[in-house]
């Protein structure tokens, strides 16, 4: 169709073209200044939803890392307490060897027995270790010392006051780890149930020292102490292996965080080099459109008729 080109058409088309180029330029400028490929969901609906998901999983990963840091603090407190308990047991063992000798007189045995009493108290103190004001060995009942001090009167003096339910921590999507350990199995509940655990063991030793029952000291008490030391070390190993697991999880999470961050950046961030090139070419197009428009709109037959 051979069409007449009218003045209004030319003006309108020049204006529409300018607007179009200008709109593209504005959009590119927006990308440059925000450094974002996606500023609204409609820019790219699929990737916008993906970016939302990546942002959330990034936030989740960071949260798990914070959880692990906190859990590690708890584990270290437990580890220190175990270390103190172990050295206390080692001291008891020395005293036991010393006190079970027939050459020790009653006065010295009494002194040794008193020392054993003190060591028992220090073991209980260690068992009452706290992390951020919470008793680490009380299970979920962290507001309650597992072995209250000063000791209540017998027969309740050695009864474990914590909860059998242990505390779990979330260290990954669907991954939890037990943070608290049950010390009641190692420390026991004293002479009441006569369970042969550390407290019962130590109370027996002090009693036998005072009564001068060297045979029991050398026999059942000594072997009991060895067995209890074993189980304490076993518990400590469990705690230690958890610490290893936490460290491994932390490393893995920081790797996940890095890769999620990279994916998010690839999804959401503007490609600077490409955007700058786009910007320049659009700017050139805009200037060309302006110049062409100005020339076309200016010239008419009037310029050439006298």
């Amino acid at each position: 169709m051979s069409s007449r080109i009218t003045t209004g058409m030319v003006q309108r088309n020049v204006l529409a073209d300018l607007n179009r180029v200008n709109a593209a330029l504005t959009r590119t400028q927006e990308k440059l200044s925000s450094n974002r490929e996606i500023t609204k969901p409609s820019d790219d609906p699929f990737n916008a939803a993906r970016a939302l998901q990546l942002r959330e999983s990034l936030a989740g990963t960071q949260q798990y890392q914070r959880n692990i840091q906190d859990t590690m603090g708890w584990q270290e407190t437990s580890e220190q307490a175990f270390s103190q308990m172990t050295s206390a047991i080692a001291q008891v063992k020395e005293l036991l060897v010393q006190g079970s000798s027939d050459s020790v007189d009653a006065g010295s045995r009494e002194a040794i027995a008193k020392e054993v009493d003190q060591l028992l108290l220090s073991i209980k103190e260690s068992a009452n270790a706290t992390y951020q004001g919470r008793y680490v060995f009380s299970g979920t009942r962290t507001n309650q010392a597992p072995y209250p001090l000063p000791e209540p009167v017998a027969p309740n003096q050695d009864v474990f006051q914590g909860s059998p339910q242990q505390i779990e921590r979330q260290i990954g999507p669907g991954v939890t780890i037990e943070v608290s350990v049950s010390v009641s199995g190692v420390l026991g509940e004293g002479q009441g149930p006569s369970d042969g655990r550390i407290i019962d063991n130590l109370r027996d030793i002090a009693e036998h020292l005072r009564s001068g029952d060297a045979a029991s000291l050398r026999g059942a008490d000594m072997s009991g102490l060895d067995a209890n030391l074993e189980s304490l070390l076993g518990l400590r190993a469990v705690n230690g292996s958890r610490q290893n697991r936490l460290e491994a999880a932390l490393t893995r999470l920081s790797e996940v965080e890095e890769s999620t961050f990279k994916q998010l950046s690839e999804t959401e961030d503007a490609d600077m080099a490409k955007t700058l090139i786009d910007f320049n070419s659009q700017q050139v197009a805009y200037q060309a459109a302006l110049k062409a428009g100005a020339n076309i709109v200016q010239v008419s037959l009037m310029d050439f008729l006298r």
Binding site: M1, S3, R4, I5, T6, T7, G8, M9, R12, N13, S300, L301, M302
Partner: peptide
């Protein structure tokens, strides 16, 4: 544009 091509005023 087509309408203008018919009905519009061309100054030239």
């Amino acid at each position: 544009d087509r309408r203008d091509s018919v009905a519009g005023v061309s100054l030239d």
